[in-house]
Amino acid sequence: MGFKLLSKLLVYLTASIMAIASPLAFSVDSSGEYPTVSEIPVGEVRLYQIADGVWSHIATQSFDGAVYPSNGLIVRDGDELLLIDTAWGAKNTAALLAEIEKQIGLPVTRAVSTHFHDDRVGGVDVLRAAGVATYASPSTRRLAEVEGNEIPTHSLEGLSSSGDAVRFGPVELFYPGAAHSTDNLIVYVPSASVLYGGCAIYELSRTSAGNVADADLAEWPTSIERIQQHYPEAQFVIPGHGLPGGLDLLKHTTNVVKAHTNRSVVE
């Protein structure tokens, strides 16, 4: 069995187990497998329904001669939608809004960016022009300005110390501490036991640490421990890039980060 097929099978099995364990909360999309990078042309966006009122959005972007996937989250909030992270750029984010209108038909009224990198804030200006209120932590807003990236308009308070959590509509926002970046936030959907790890969490097929220019490698494993301790009931975990899975993604990420750190020390 090929690795790609095995990865998709694991996603399907995880979703099936969740649907059985929580039949009222989960209505997993039966329309197909989780979209992969090879299936999404740059400039297009796919939506994948995880649970009743919960979707991931998947886009792709060219970077350094390669094409990478990027995940975000959409959560229903009454007759409105909360968006977590842009679709990595203005063109993708405009396509995301169009796809949401086509498939869901509810307005996106608020959006949260989970850290300051372009795959999370690139497209904020498109959201703002569409009347979406954009939010991020003060740290993310400051770092985005320093980096020359787009800056969300509103500040999220109460997320300055490791372990801080605040309720934001249908989700809980959690600051686990520094990891992929010093400002990275985690998003949890309690009604569906869905954990969105953003770039602080890796997919299972990833074996290298990737972009760690703004990471705190020493603190990252401790931050992941905080996530595990705060959300032990999480059933569906979405990484910032690639295929979702279960809580095993947290341990896998820790292993990859520690291996990278150990290699760096040896070198």
Rank of each mutant, 00 (worst) to 15 (best):
5 L>Y: 05
7 S>T: 14
9 L>E: 07
13 L>D: 14
14 T>Y: 13
18 M>W: 08
18 M>D: 03
19 A>Y: 15
20 I>V: 10
21 A>G: 10
22 S>Q: 04
22 S>L: 14
24 L>K: 07
27 S>T: 09
29 D>Q: 10
30 S>R: 09
36 T>M: 09
42 V>K: 07
44 E>W: 11
48 Y>P: 08
49 Q>F: 08
52 D>T: 04
53 G>C: 05
56 S>R: 10
57 H>N: 02
59 A>G: 10
60 T>S: 05
63 F>M: 14
70 S>E: 12
70 S>H: 10
72 G>S: 09
73 L>C: 13
79 D>T: 10
82 L>V: 09
83 L>V: 09
85 D>R: 00
85 D>A: 00
89 G>I: 02
90 A>P: 10
91 K>C: 03
96 L>M: 13
100 I>Y: 01
101 E>D: 04
103 Q>L: 14
105 G>D: 07
105 G>N: 15
107 P>H: 15
109 T>I: 15
110 R>V: 08
113 S>A: 15
117 H>F: 00
120 R>C: 09
124 V>H: 09
132 V>D: 01
138 P>Y: 14
142 R>Y: 14
147 E>A: 13
150 E>N: 08
150 E>M: 03
151 I>D: 02
152 P>L: 09
158 G>T: 11
159 L>N: 14
160 S>K: 10
161 S>D: 09
162 S>G: 07
163 G>H: 03
166 V>Y: 03
167 R>N: 05
170 P>C: 04
175 Y>D: 03
176 P>G: 05
180 H>V: 00
187 V>A: 08
188 Y>I: 09
190 P>H: 00
191 S>N: 07
192 A>C: 05
196 Y>W: 02
196 Y>M: 06
198 G>C: 01
199 C>Q: 00
200 A>D: 08
200 A>G: 07
201 I>G: 01
202 Y>L: 09
202 Y>S: 08
205 S>T: 04
205 S>M: 13
210 G>D: 09
215 A>I: 14
219 E>K: 03
219 E>L: 09
219 E>I: 02
224 I>D: 02
227 I>W: 01
227 I>G: 08
231 Y>K: 04
232 P>I: 15
238 I>D: 01
243 L>K: 06
243 L>E: 10
248 D>Y: 03
252 H>W: 08
253 T>H: 02
265 V>S: 06
